[in-house]
């Protein structure tokens, strides 16, 4: 089975571009009338930069129809992690209705990132397959087994894991494994309170990349610790049988992400057909990749950053 490429979508146009670029799976969320700016999908309906991260019903349905006509799977982002009790339980009820709406509009699977929601969805009788989102912190085999008991069919392993760790998990479980390629948060999934793109109008950028003044007036982006590139690791990820590679970016102009999708697709296809990749040729598709994203910032290679992992 070929390793799939899973990419974000936040408009019909983005869906067409991403699927043309080689996406096998797309993921997206819906706007919800309970909120003005926030959502049930872990991204603001509208970001501080004015990007609409989620879709209206009609456009969502059009995307599903187009995706299915191209044999592309649609995952529905129901990955908020902030569901709590509320008067009349309107908040959880709102979440369940949100999910039912996504399913009704044709979503194939759900991305869920909250234990209470996992339980509530099944209690509601919703049988749609569920992917455990990265906030559920599947860092080790025990957690993967724990999530399996909660009836998920796939685990999205968070950023900040090594290839050997992914390998140990993959060999241990019969669940599908999805991993991130590309830049993410420098902090561990679920343990970062520098929330952004959640509904605020202020622009805090990506706080873990900020510059800080340290002792002796040294200025550095000292918190920046998330690697970027997985191109160099495509062969070993493919051989390991990773089910899906996930690119993030619902909060950006997803049409721009299509360049990256195309580059990864080229690498996967080249490896599937020829048993090797021409790294330099593939990377040359994005001129700034070589110097800014690769080498020290390779995600699953033996870099000094990964050697420093606890």
């Amino acid at each position: 089975m070929i390793m799939k490429l899973k990419v974000p979508v936040n408009s019909y146009e983005a869906a067409v571009k991403q699927i043309e670029a080689g996406a096998d799976e797309i993921y997206m969320g819906l706007e919800d009338s309970h909120f003005n700016r926030m959502s049930y999908s872990a991204r603001a309906q509208i970001t501080s930069q004015g990007v609409h991260s989620n879709l209206r019903d009609e456009e969502f349905a059009r995307i599903v129809e187009y995706a299915h006509s191209k044999n592309v799977t649609v995952d529905f982002t129901a990955n908020c992690q902030h569901v709590t009790n509320s008067t009349d339980d309107f908040y959880r009820e709102g979440f369940l209705e949100y999910v039912e709406r996504g399913i009704h509009l044709g979503a194939d699977a759900l991305i869920v990132a909250d234990i209470g929601n996992l339980i509530a969805l099944r209690k509601r009788g919703i049988q749609t397959p569920i992917i455990a989102g990265s906030y559920l912190s599947g860092f080790n085999r025990e957690t993967v087994d724990f999530l399996k008991e909660l009836d998920v069919f796939r685990i999205c392993i968070p950023d900040q894991v090594t290839f050997d760790e992914i390998k140990a998990i993959k060999k241990h479980t019969d669940l599908e494994i999805e991993i991130f390629i590309g830049y993410g948060c420098s902090n561990l999934a679920g343990v970062c309170n520098f929330c952004h793109n959640n509904g605020e109008k202020i622009n805090v950028g990506v706080p873990c990349r900020a510059k800080f003044k340290m002792k002796h007036n040294k200025i550095a982006n000292i918190l920046d610790a998330c690697p970027d590139c997985a191109i160099c690791s495509i062969p070993k990820l493919y051989d390991l049988g990773i089910d899906s590679l996930k690119i993030i970016g619902r909060e950006t102009d997803c049409r721009e992400v299509a360049e990256i999708t195309r580059m990864y697709k080229t690498a996967i296809q080249m490896y599937a057909e020829a048993g090797k990749i021409d790294r330099k040729e593939i990377i040359s598709a994005i001129p700034w990749w070589e110097n800014n994203m690769c080498h020290d910032r390779c995600k699953y290679e033996n870099t000094s950053l990964l050697q420093s992992y606890l």
Partner: peptide
């Protein structure tokens, strides 16, 4: 606590 990283 604001965040935890993978490496010290």
């Amino acid at each position: 606590l604001y965040g935890t990283q993978r490496s010290c």
